[in-house]
Amino acid sequence: MERERRSSPQTLTILQTLAAQPRAWRHGYDLSAQTQLKSGTLYPVLMRLSDRGFLDSKWEESELPGRPPRRMYRLTAQGRAYAKSEVAAHRASRATVKLARSTP
């Protein structure tokens, strides 16, 4: 029996944050600050999303001399579609739960 697994709440938060400005490149620290996720949670999710082709990434030279470059991320077209479908599925499941709870 094939079961489709939905994204974790943390993944959903990151997808929503990235989808809010789909064309903008975002740093890991910036994403962490906005999503309130720690680096230990954020980076594994970013790596999985990159592995699945949902994220584009590039290196940006640091403004500070002698410092390592920063990695920046944004959603690919496939990632945008995935984010849209995941957010829609999450909303639908929440609506179903709400309806089930309100039904006596």
Partner: peptide, 12 residues
């Protein structure tokens, strides 16, 4: 805190 999280992510 950030560095500790990065170490955990790397180990994971």
């Amino acid at each position: 805190s950030w560095a500790f999280g990065c170490v955990l992510a790397g180990m994971n």
